[in-house]
């Protein structure tokens, strides 16, 4: 019952709103999925020079973050880069 209530509260309109906000951030930044893919590949190339990373687990996206200087939020590039086996890297 608790679970049902939870789903009822989160109607499809809030899903729509969240999805829209995300897609509009990348629309407005003029950053297409192709460009994002290129950025991702470049980041992999640079970081791989120094440490071994999990390229399949790498996640990169444009999202919004609260700004300290501006009022409200600004677009930000988020990259989540899992590192493989740090121990063996440090020589």
């Amino acid at each position: 019952m608790g679970l049902l209530d939870y789903f009822k509260k989160k109607g499809s309109s809030s899903i729509a709103k969240d999805r829209l906000k995300l897609v509009l951030v990348s629309d407005r930044a003029g950053c297409s999925p192709e460009i994002l893919e290129q950025i991702k590949n470049d980041i992999i190339a640079v970081i791989s020079k120094y440490i071994e990373i999990d390229t399949d687990g790498l996640d990169i996206k444009i999202s919004q973050t609260d700004s300290e200087s501006h009022n409200g939020s600004v677009p930000a590039l988020f990259a989540n880069i899992p590192i493989k086996d740090m121990k063996n890297q440090v020589k």
């Binding site: 009822k8 509260k9 989160k10 109607g11 499809s12 309109s13 809030s14 729509a16 709103k17």
Partner: peptide
């Protein structure tokens, strides 16, 4: 639908 939470 807005009241139900199913429309923005």
């Amino acid at each position: 639908m807005v009241k139900r939470g199913d429309m923005m």
